[in-house]
């Protein structure tokens, strides 16, 4: 609406998204360093390393993160065995610890987009927004990043940000950019839109002539949304 206000609002939106991406990049780098220095690995050694970082992220005032953790590739702790060290919420509730003892349950994690894609591409990835039925039962975006031991992918670190949190943070910024401004995922799904007739999860495209600006590694800011 207001050209003077759109530019700073866009910059703030970029800071928000790049802040989340930067956090996962730093954490992945620290985890990779630790994995290469650590000797023989065990589940409890992994817990001891991962939990304090997760705790800091979940309990930080005004935290954007609802859940975070580490998932091992098969082979890191033993043949055909994975390991999940993931916590969520203010009470640091441990997610699905029984999965660490159940190969069937583990295959669900290993087959999930947020694990499979970063392991295959060796690149960070954002999944969603999607309904996370494995952990939070919420509508979330999951940011994941591969970690390495030597040259091999040892697993992933990841964090969940709810669509609700992004709505709270991004909606005021989008309103300053335009009445139909929208932040969309790589798949063209709405994360947040200033227009009340577009819900998170709706597939949308830019209105005719509206600008599409990349935000962070995979999101796009549409100056005005048209329902696809």
């Amino acid at each position: 609406m207001n050209g003077n206000d759109a530019a700073p609002a866009t910059a703030e939106l970029r800071t928000l998204v790049e802040g989340i991406e930067g956090r996962i990049d730093d954490w992945a780098a620290a985890t990779t360093r630790w994995l290469n220095d650590a000797g023989k690995l065990s589940g409890s050694a992994i817990d001891k390393f991962v939990r304090p970082t997760v705790s800091d992220m979940l309990l930080a005032p005004g935290s954007n993160v609802t859940g975070a953790g580490f998932i091992a590739s098969a082979g890191l702790l033993g043949p055909d065995r994975s390991y999940i060290a993931w916590w969520q919420g203010e009470d640091l509730e441990r997610v699905d610890a029984l999965a660490n003892f159940s190969p069937q349950s583990m295959s669900r994690y290993v087959g999930a987009e947020w694990f499979k894609v970063p392991v295959a591409t060796r690149r960070p990835h954002v999944t969603g927004p999607y309904i996370d039925l494995l952990c939070t039962d919420e509508y979330v975006l999951t940011f994941t990043h591969p970690v390495f031991r030597g040259d091999a992918v040892a697993g992933i670190v990841g964090l969940d940000v709810t669509a609700q949190t992004l709505e709270r943070r991004a909606l005021p910024l989008l309103r300053r950019i335009g009445p139909r401004a929208a932040l969309v995922s790589a798949g063209g799904r709405t994360i947040v839109c200033a227009a009340p007739d577009v819900d998170a999860g709706d597939v949308i495209g830019p209105a005719e002539g509206a600008a599409a600006t990349p935000i962070g590694r995979s999101f796009t800011l549409l100056a005005a949304a048209a329902v696809a």
Binding site: S44, E93, R94, A97, L98, A99, N100, F101, S102, Q104, S105
Partner: peptide, 29 residues
């Protein structure tokens, strides 16, 4: 209830070893 549910849904199967008391306590908080 958690363990019963895991058996009902087939996540834990017959003959599978459960973690010991200490591990289980740590895992479930």
């Amino acid at each position: 209830r958690r363990i019963e549910l895991a058996v009902e849904t087939g996540l834990l199967t017959s003959g599978q070893r459960l973690p010991n008391e200490i591990e289980l306590a740590g895992a479930l908080g």
